[in-house]
Write a protein that binds this DNA or RNA. Structure first.
Lengths: 210, 210
DNA sequence: CCTCCATTCGACCACCCTGGTCAACTTAAA
DNA sequence: TTTAAGTTGACCAGGGTGGTCGAATGGAGG
């Protein structure tokens, strides 16, 4: 939609943010265009001047979100780090940074990925598929497997770390819910998180050969 | 509500289940009494014959859920097991069993606990507080701390296990979403889960003294 | 100054759903 | 046959829905 793209940045930001949050919280059907225009501070008519209807707005948001995640997050992951746990440190730190700078996009996406996307246009579906593949590869490519201890299943150690990351992230989101982004002492949580991963290094990696 | 309590079991079950699911999925405000009566297969009038209004129905569901979790789950946790990981095995197995037998209650409760409960009557609030305290004690009371290895923070090992449990549970819920309860090969997941915990025993507990 | 057109607004539309009521009906017991 | 409890769904006023459109605004070009 050229009309929307050429808008001044600030207004664009307000409309995108309001729309992403509304769809994230309510889902497609129940999201209210009235709420969106109220939150974005524009007249009702403008939304349908920029986007021809609710569905087209939604598709625009999906594309925008997938692109943002690709550009801001995935494309910046450092796959030169062969130590799995060290890579997880870097990946997670980057993820949180990008998350806090793009709250609306991430919240919209996390509900999007859980929802039924089968109704989306082909172009968006393949864009999503590519994102999945990239994300998977970036996490596991060129990992040095010899670091792990050998008396238990390496796959299980791998997965335990994954589940731990998921659980920790969720607790973090719950704890920070409602706080303003600026008020969050980011480094404090990074430090604590790294300490946990260091414990996993001691317990999951082979002992240092002296 | 005496009217409702003395109903035949089957009808009671249908109404409870329909209500719990509706409130769980939509939240209090957006939950529709029309949907509930349709799903429960009763006339609109009956719901307001049993419960004087929407709010009273909701309060009844809260109390019912708290009571169910207390009776079916918490009161059956075995606190004689001093080995933390072994206790987690027992607790989790019991939790899953009860979860599958009371899907509606657990789904309602998990949204309830995340929501703002400050508007609830005092009686329900203190009932909830008691549940929290009990749950905490049952998980940590009389644990044998000497089993853990001593070269890393015991608290961190504790928490990592907690986060792992949370992450694993969430993945399981996602994987099983949409499947009918009967179709689930419960034991398969229990077995896999226990294997993970055994890995944690090897890595987090002190080596056997020979 | 006027003209023109892109931009902006919000009142308005027909439609749908809401929590709750109530007159009418059925059932079952006395 | 009488009485009361149980049950129904049409109905209500109120509010929200996605989307439209006539009118107002503002700035550029003549």
């Amino acid at each position: 939609m050229k009309k929307f793209e050429t808008l001044e940045e600030e207004k664009k930001r307000r409309i995108l943010e309001a729309s992403l949050f509304e769809f994230a919280e309510e889902g497609y059907e129940k999201a209210s265009t009235n709420n969106i225009v109220k939150e974005a501070g524009i007249g009702k008519g403008m939304l349908f001047y920029y986007f021809k209807n609710k569905k087209q707005l939604y598709h625009y948001l999906v594309e925008y979100s997938l692109r943002t995640i690709q550009e801001q997050y995935f494309s910046r992951i450092d796959t030169d780090e062969p130590d799995f746990i060290e890579r997880m440190k870097k990946v997670t730190r980057l993820k949180w940074e990008v998350y806090l700078e793009n709250l609306a996009v991430f919240q919209f996406s996390s509900t999007l990925f859980l929802s039924d996307m089968s109704g989306l246009p082909e172009r968006l579906l393949s864009q999503y598929k590519k994102l999945q593949e990239d994300g998977f590869a970036l996490l596991y490519k060129d990992i040095d497997l010899t670091l792990f201890r050998k008396d238990v299943s390496r796959d299980k150690l791998f997965h335990i770390i994954q589940y731990f990351l998921g659980g920790y992230e969720e607790r973090l989101k719950n704890e920070l819910k409602g706080q303003s982004v600026q008020a969050i002492d980011f480094e404090k949580y990074v430090k604590e998180f790294f300490e946990y991963l260091d414990v996993l290094k001691v317990t999951f990696y082979e002992e240092e050969r002296t």
